[in-house]
Structures are given as structure tokens and as C-alpha cells.
Design a protein around this nucleic acid. Structure first.
Length: 298
DNA sequence: CTAGGATCCTGTCAGC
DNA sequence: TGCTGACAGGATCCTA
């Protein structure tokens, strides 16, 4: 599930590929996941690739933005067809095609392995660069946002943990809430970009039980937790993200962070701190929490 | 402010 | 082998 490190990995890869490329054509296969007026982005040059929390933002010359949220199983894949003259993308079944001539009749699929039944949109860019948006569970979305249009979710996002989150602010944030600390970490309006995997890893790192109420943390524990949050996020980025479920980078390659999990998905295994404890799994509001029975006491 | 439930969706897996 | 049902999970919306 793409969280901050996964989306950042994708952003880093996309930036040099997409910037200065022009959007020539867009095929929408499943329109339920694409919001906004596709015509507005046609012929536009991509000026930047940014990330805010778990959201990827492409800025365009005309001030429009393309927002992508991958949620659980979303993927963004890039194919450069420059060296493969014969390669063409054909979509089977109904789809809407914007730009580069009129829509042709239903065509046989012949193209790249990246195109699957879970491909919902394809962006055809200049220099034969193709950007695929795939999502098995269809939880994700692509939104085309006007220059002055507000995006509620984006406006409400909390600070970026690796950029503008300091110890004092985090202590206050945590200690004024009665909610379980695990959910404070995952609340995007409090801190942006942390999901289930990194929340579990950060709490293990800080030796804090996921069910502890925020107000019961000492200042020392809170600042230790912040350090751990930064540490596990940086570790995630270093290993190219965690391919726990469907996550792959823009080349279709898996990340390696899952090989370095300390608690996530380690139920009934021994604690890697060799404290003698075993990793437990509980359900918190329908989310799996993993923690060590010995070093994360309530 | 907070908790809890339903919702969206489909691959996977357990059970029969 | 094949069917059925439970389950996972980010964010939103609704109720209490």
C-alpha cells in the first residue's frame, strides 16, 4: 500500500521522465476513477512532479494540476516506447480517447505487458512516453484540478513529517488527543503520509504500544516517536518502498523495505530485538496492529 | 472531540 | 475441483 516512502520513490523516478513532456493523448478506460475535465490537460507540458502526503501532484503549464492517489493497490507505470517502433497500445472494449485524432473502433490488445485489465487510464506523452494508471481494487483516483480550485483533502493535510514537523509541535499534537497513538499517526490531517505499515514500524522503534492514548505519552516518548517516524520513513525511501501487496515502482519493480520490517506482518515471530517477546497482532478499528509483547507495554 | 460502522472493490484463501 | 463467504484496507460519510 503506497504510503509516503512509496509515493516518494515514484515521484523521484517520474520527475526526470515527465518534466517538459507534453500530454498528447489520454485514454480513459474506467471513468469512475478519473475526475475532472480531461480536455484541459491535452497539449499541456508537465512542469513539475511533487508529492504531498501520499498524493502525487503533476503541475501543468496552464496552471492545472493532475492529482493521483494510489490508495491500496494503485500503480503508475512508465513505458518508453521510443526504441520500439512497432509497439503500439490497443485497448480492448469501450474507452474514451482524448486527443490525437478521433477514437477508433474497438481494437485488439497487442501492446505492452503493462496494460492489463486493471489499467484505468493511459497518458500518452511526447517522445513516446506512456504513463499507465493501474489499480486492482479501484480505490484510488486521478483528479484534474483547475488553477484556483481547492482540493479539500489536500487543504486539510497535516505537516510533512520529513520536512516541517518539529518536536514541540509533535508533542503538543500527540498529547492533546485521547485517541490511540496509532490512529494519530495515521490521521492524515495530523501528519501527512503515514499509513499502517510505517505507523506500526515507528511505534515498535519507539517502544510504544499502539493502543496507548496520545495524552498518556510523556514528552520524551513523543519526541522519541517523532525521531522513529522520520527514521522508518527514511528507511522506506532508502529501500525503494515496501511491496507488501501490489506496490511496484514506475518500472514495475518491487521495493525492498518488506525485507526489513521489524514488526509489520511478523505475527507470532520472535522480536528482532531479541528481548524474548513475540510479535502480536490485534485489530484496531479494522486495521491490523503489530507489536512486541515485551518491549511495547501499555 | 471521539468511537464505531458502513461504504467503495476485487484478489486471495479457508472451508466445505 | 469448484463454489461460497470472509477478509483486507485509505479515506469518507454518517450516527451516536
Amino acid at each position: 500500500m503506497p504510503e509516503l516512502p512509496e509515493v516518494e520513490t515514484i515521484r523521484t523516478q517520474l520527475e526526470p521522465i515527465l518534466v517538459d513532456k507534453k500530454i498528447i493523448r489520454v485514454d480513459i478506460i474506467h471513468s469512475q476513477m478519473v475526475y475532472g475535465q480531461v480536455e484541459k490537460i491535452l497539449g499541456q507540458t508537465i512542469t513539475g512532479v511533487f508529492r504531498r502526503g501520499k498524493i502525487l501532484i503533476l503541475t501543468l503549464r496552464n496552471g492545472y494540476r493532475l492529482l493521483v492517489h494510489l490508495k491500496m493497490t494503485g500503480q503508475l507505470l512508465v513505458k518508453n516506447a521510443a526504441n520500439r517502433k512497432k509497439e503500439q497500445v490497443f485497448v480492448t472494449g469501450s474507452h474514451v480517447r482524448y486527443g490525437a485524432g478521433s477514437a477508433k473502433k474497438s481494437q485488439a490488445y497487442k501492446g505492452s505487458i503493462l496494460l492489463s485489465k486493471h489499467t484505468h487510464a493511459i497518458f500518452f506523452l511526447s517522445r513516446r512516453t506512456h504513463l499507465y494508471y493501474n489499480d486492482v481494487r479501484k480505490f484510488g483516483w486521478v483528479k484534474i484540478i483547475g488553477p484556483k480550485e481547492l482540493v479539500p483533502f489536500l487543504e486539510k493535510l497535516g505537516p510533512e513529517p520529513l520536512v516541517d514537523l518539529d518536536a514541540i509541535f509533535f508533542q503538543k499534537l500527540v498529547r492533546q488527543s485521547k485517541r490511540a497513538i496509532k490512529f494519530l499517526l495515521m490521521d492524515q490531517t495530523k501528519v501527512a503520509g503515514i499509513g499502517n505499515i510505517y505507523a506500526n514500524e515507528a511505534l515498535f522503534c519507539a517502544k510504544i504500544h499502539p493502543q496507548v492514548s496520545g495524552e498518556n505519552l510523556t514528552r520524551q516518548e513523543a519526541s522519541r516517536l517523532l525521531k522513529c517516524v522520520k527514521q522508518v520513513l527514511r528507511k522506506g525511501i532508502k529501500y525503494g518502498g515496501a511491496s507488501q501487496s501490489d506496490y511496484v515502482d514506475t518500472k514495475g519493480e518491487k521495493g525492498r523495505m518488506q525485507e526489513h520490517f521489524m514488526v509489520y506482518d511478523r505475527e507470532r515471530k520472535l522480536c528482532l530485538r531479541h528481548c524474548g517477546g513475540t510479535i502480536c497482532r490485534i485489530s484496531q478499528l479494522g486495521r491490523s496492529s503489530f507489536f512486541c509483547s515485551m518491549c511495547q507495554k501499555k
